[in-house]
Design a protein around this nucleic acid. Sequence first.
DNA 1: CAACGTCAGTTCCCTGAGGGAACCCCAATC
DNA 2: GATTGGGGTTCCCTCAGGGAACTGACGTTG
Lengths: 150, 150
Amino acid sequence: MQRTDFSRMACSIARTLDVIGEPWSPLVLRDVWVGLTRFEQLQADLGISRKVLTERLNHLVDQGVLERRPYDRRPRYEYVLTEKGAELVDLLMVMAGWGDKWLAGEAGPPVLYRHHACGEISGVDLRCTRCGEPMHANDVDPLPGPGATV
Amino acid sequence: MQRTDFSRMACSIARTLDVIGEPWSPLVLRDVWVGLTRFEQLQADLGISRKVLTERLNHLVDQGVLERRPYDRRPRYEYVLTEKGAELVDLLMVMAGWGDKWLAGEAGPPVLYRHHACGEISGVDLRCTRCGEPMHANDVDPLPGPGATV
DNA sequence: CAACGTCAGTTCCCTGAGGGAACCCCAATC
DNA sequence: GATTGGGGTTCCCTCAGGGAACTGACGTTG
């Protein structure tokens, strides 16, 4: 157990990191989201080692985040987002929003998002599921929940 | 751990990963958020190697996410979130929300969040900054932005 | 004032994960 | 039958993470 195992911690952040916390995994998801769904495409776009790409794809499939499916009679496969995976992409959008705000600098954001519902270039906003008001780290108290066994 | 440097990619996700993508970094931020702000506390709570904890804290301070400040006349320091860091915690809340939904299982979420504004136990919801409607990965088209030089 | 304790790191060695390049397998096409 | 091209495996090498011991600054206690 050299590399510490996050999956057994009583923390949803740690558990989520166990799914996409390894290096490259979020970028693999991003690429799949924007339509780079094949091994060679991913490898070329990311410059990732083929060995590691294989490992990451297998792990993401095992976790139910991606689905591996054939697209030819030849042994050719593409990776597509499951529902579980698509909701992880929501997380990536929030991540991109933070990067746009704090890291983009003069040049401005590298990618813009057009919202289908209103057609506008926009970003995400975090709001309370209950009351609809803004909900940020400082607007919240963390309390132990039912799964908080240690 | 990242042999490859993500910070120069024209992608806000990759750049954000360069700040908190290393193993342990998100958990360090989580701990600081909930009040574990000192070296010994973090080390004990996470079980992280002291060497790596030092590296992560330095990196997070360099990135302007944490601030290192003395709390005694002795050489004692605590780490506190900057505004930049607090907004990263927003990201962690979204991450926790995903983990709660997809990984918590029978036991239920290990942590609950009480929203100050309404007093309810709640979660975050992603909405469009412009129109206020729900905004998820599938509700959006990514377009090249001003900083999209490759 | 010497001994002790505490916090906040450093230093050391050892293992294992990532990088990189070469190699392999399969099915279709030339 | 040889070639091509996608989708991986296998190999070696280096460097990052784990773990534990060590250090140094500064109070407190006897």
